[in-house]
Computed example of a mutant assay.
Amino acid sequence: MTAITVLGSANMDLVAYVPKAPRLGETVTGREFRTVPGGKGANQAVAAARLGARVAMIGAVGADAFGVRLRSALTAAGVDTCGLRTVEGASGTAHITVDDEGGNSIIVIPGANGLVTGLESGDEERIAASGTLLLQLEVPLSAVAAAARAARAHGVRTVLTPAPVQPLPPDLPDAVDLLVPNEHEAAALTGLTDPRQAAAALLERFPEVVVTLGAAGALHAARGQEPYTVPAPRVRAVDTTAAGDTFAGALAVALGEGRPMREAMAWAAAAAALSVQRPGAQDAMPGRADADAAFAGGPQP
């Protein structure tokens, strides 16, 4: 079984569903409000666990009702939460607006996630016992860098989703094996709006890059190889909140199982396409059987 460790955030998502997102200064009437467990770290952990991996989560939740629910959601998905600390104060929250086209805008309040500043007792051992480390940027960069260095020291593949996008420490790329930005994050990191040009620029710092392109699929680029695009299944999106995290978790599972990159990307795209057809984040993530069925019935690269 593929073993994955995730260091990252756990947030309670406070989601408002509206016909159209409000402009600055505008008030609109929504049609539904939900509180659902989320956070990019927890989302990727749940995605990977539901797809068949053995997953351990490193992070923090607050000593509040949200923290209890966030831990319970991870445990219910089969994620090992021994590395998920409970700290004084509030859990992280994400305030999300989802429109009728499935688009979203998000404000993240770090809460307990902001106290994850480095590795604690047992964390390096958790990382060393896995085949892949999944990282994002909703916890302090000091913790992200420490985890990446630990993974490099133990020969563990490190996959970084650079979101929310921000300037990266100069030495972090040296400890990252695969960067998985979306096209907007790739543009922010490079100043280049064309995904192929952005990917080429990122290869100056990272050995391998997969840029997710939404409905257009995903672009792969690696040093010494020709870039290529893997298509995504055509579906009607209801809520895209979980798409990127589902893709990252699925990609880590597929690569951990030894699948070639092109096939791994196609399988991850099929899983992500399933997630956008349901509302919410973790609630929308598919199980292994559904992902396999969608991959078998979808467009092949």
Rank of each mutant, 00 (worst) to 15 (best):
G217R: 03
G217W: 00
G217K: 00
A218R: 03
A218G: 14
L219K: 12
L219W: 02
L219E: 07
L219V: 02
H220C: 10
A222K: 05
R223W: 13
R223L: 15
R223P: 04
R223C: 13
R223M: 13
R223D: 07
G224R: 07
G224T: 09
G224C: 09
G224N: 07
G224E: 04
Q225N: 14
E226A: 13
P227E: 11
P227C: 13
P227A: 09
Y228K: 12
Y228D: 15
Y228E: 15
T229C: 13
T229K: 14
A232I: 09
P233K: 10
R234I: 09
R234Y: 09
R234K: 12
V235G: 08
V235D: 01
R236I: 14
R236Y: 14
A237N: 01
A237T: 04
A237F: 04
A237Y: 01
A237L: 09
A237W: 02
A237Q: 07
V238E: 12
D239P: 09
T240C: 11
T240L: 04
T241F: 02
A242E: 09
A242R: 03
A242S: 04
A242T: 03
A243H: 07
A243T: 01
A243F: 02
G244V: 05
G244H: 11
G244R: 00
D245S: 01
D245N: 09
D245V: 11
T246F: 08
T246W: 11
F247R: 00
A248D: 12
A248I: 08
A248W: 08
A248M: 13
A250W: 03
A250V: 09
A250P: 01
A250K: 00
A250C: 10
L251Y: 06
L251F: 11
L251S: 08
A252L: 06
A252G: 10
A252S: 07
A252F: 05
A252K: 03
V253F: 00
V253W: 08
V253D: 06
A254N: 00
A254S: 14
A254T: 12
L255R: 11
G256D: 03
G256Y: 03
E257D: 11
E257K: 10
E257N: 13
G258Q: 02
G258Y: 05
R259Y: 10
R259D: 15
M261V: 15
M261S: 14
R262H: 11
R262T: 09
R262G: 08
E263M: 06
A264Q: 07
A264Y: 05
A264P: 07
A264I: 04
M265C: 06
A266Q: 15
A266S: 13
A266C: 14
W267E: 11
W267H: 05
W267A: 06
W267V: 02
A268I: 03
A269E: 10
A269G: 13
A269D: 14
A270T: 04
A270G: 02
A271T: 01
A271R: 00
A271W: 10
A271E: 04
A271F: 05
A272N: 09
A272Q: 14
A272I: 08
A272T: 01
A272S: 13
A273E: 02
A273S: 07
A273N: 03
A273H: 03
